[in-house]
Design a protein around this nucleic acid. Sequence first.
DNA 1: ATGGCCGGAGAGTCCGGA
Length: 258
Amino acid sequence: MKIATWNVNSLKVRQQHVIDWLELSHADVLCLQELKMPDEKFPRAELADKGYRSWFAGQKTYNGVAILVRDGIEVDETQVVRNIPGFEDEQQRVIALTAGGARIVSAYFPNGQAPGTDKFAYKLRWLEALQQWLKDELQAHPKLALLGDYNIAPEDRDVHDPKAWEGQNLVSPEERAAFANLVELGLIDVFRKFDQPEKAFSWWDYRMLAFRRNAGLRIDHILLSPALAEGCTLCEVDKTPRKWDQPSDHAPVIAQLA
DNA sequence: ATGGCCGGAGAGTCCGGA
């Protein structure tokens, strides 16, 4: 089973990119973030035509997450969860379901804006709630995958210019500690289990010709529980759609599971 | 040169993103 994650920065604008990339990648499960649309606008029928069922949690303008599952992959309809249970939040950032025997979590982590701001405090609270929930979720579902836009570059090698970024939002010690807490639960950043290009990123600013200069960050991740990581044979960033016309600023990340 | 690009909302020399 191939599982993937992609922050599309508006599904309305990127709908055709998603359809084209599903055909290109043959992903079985695709987690999406930043839909930026209410549920009634979600292109469920168009994706169904292409052979994918959709589960989503959207809202107007901001945030919004989805999981697309290829026809033929079994989904347990009774186990769909939206948002972090017990964490009161207007913002639609989490959806989880069980597909092909694996617990799949699609998450859009808060951006945080800058250390010291209210939004940064919210990011840390959200991260703490996520970790607490996943601790229970792992007990119930030993085969678990956490995919999404983490808005955290876990190490300096995930940053094009670590010196310029030192202490900034997305790389600060507090955020990296929160990422380490997820790893502490047993989750594995499978991207690092395989050989990768020296400067491998998943996001590039629209400005400053950042993509052309490869001035990016690796902030989109696939973390797997040991039971899933064991059978994982590949994990990579696919930069292809970042080169298409009117691209998302993020590229998809894909992993091959047993 | 601390900006530059986007998408969305909706007409705010806007905001949020990362």
